[in-house]
């Protein structure tokens, strides 16, 4: 998955693999970079019934739908509607500059989202005060309580809450209702914990980049990420898999 990481054509398209963006803007911290997977050229398509950026711009309904998803994705991480709108706007402008063709709408969307992730990294980089350390501590205490409750005195799973295998989880990925639950579970994560988690999982930043900048120790950073994963797992377990999915 995501194995092919090709060079990204169109250097004005706002996609970069590492280092500062080419916009000429001063970049205070070289450590911040986007290191997540970028849709590779394998997903590109040359000829046939490809979707060109050109067609997309003219398709108002398609544009509106993708834009809506982009805003939701950006808002989840930036939690500021103006900043989210700005990031989406910049990503779209950068995407429209490209003249690539795509194997389909899904490939096009993946590519546009890769640009958006970079714009979100930029937005976060310019607002490092986005994490409230003391709130982070309070959030942690609450999440730790739910984690500790899973174990008995010998630190083994309590029988009634020991993880039970999820049934055909990958089929859930194809279901619209699953993603609605997933969305709700992400929104349910406490704000500061969620930010750090999404920088890691969505933006592909390394933990020392995220926590080093914030003055959080590596050990604590791992604890925060685990809390978020644990919380998300629990939410999906209760909200989808234990409930028998959509069926």
């Amino acid at each position: 998955m995501d194995a092919v990481i090709g060079t990204v054509p169109g250097q004005d398209a706002g996609v970069r693999r590492r280092g500062p963006s080419g916009s000429g803007r001063g970049v205070p911290r070289a450590a911040w970079r986007y290191s997540g997977a970028t849709p590779g050229q394998a997903e590109r398509f040359r000829g046939g019934d490809a979707v060109a950026m050109e067609d997309w711009r003219k398709d108002g309904a398609m544009l509106a739908e993708i834009r809506r998803d982009m805003v939701r994705f950006a808002l989840l991480q930036l939690r500021d509607s103006q900043a989210a709108e700005d990031a989406v706007q910049e990503a779209l402008l950068a995407a429209f500059d490209g003249a690539e063709r795509f194997a389909g709408r899904s490939a096009l969307k993946t590519w546009v989202f890769s640009i958006l992730r970079n714009k979100i990294v930029d937005a976060i980089r310019h607002r490092t005060r986005m994490i409230n350390a003391s709130a982070l501590g309070t959030e942690g205490e609450a999440l730790d309580e739910t984690f500790e409750a899973l174990f008995d005195g010998r630190a083994h799973w309590r029988p009634e809450v020991a993880p039970v295998a999820w049934v055909r989880p990958d089929e859930a990925l194809e279901q619209q209702q699953f993603w609605e639950v997933f969305d709700a579970c992400l929104e349910h994560l406490p704000e500061n914990t969620a930010r750090i988690f999404m920088m890691r999982e969505f933006l592909g930043l390394e933990t020392d980049e995220i926590c080093g900048e914030l003055g959080i120790s590596a050990g604590n950073c791992h604890v925060i990420l685990h809390r978020a994963r644990h919380s998300l797992r629990r939410c999906l377990d209760g909200g989808w898999f234990a409930a028998g999915g959509a069926g």
């Binding site: 993708i66 969307k109 992730r117 993880p163 969305d183 999982e201 969505f202 994963r229």
Partner: peptide, 26 residues
């Protein structure tokens, strides 16, 4: 089981970050 679920979570997060969900895909 916990590990399998964590791996699944990763796959789901990757899809989400690629814009494949919730409205999208083909």
């Amino acid at each position: 089981n916990y590990r399998s679920q964590m791996l699944f979570l990763r796959r789901a997060l990757r899809r989400y970050a690629g814009g494949k969900a919730p409205g999208g895909g083909s």
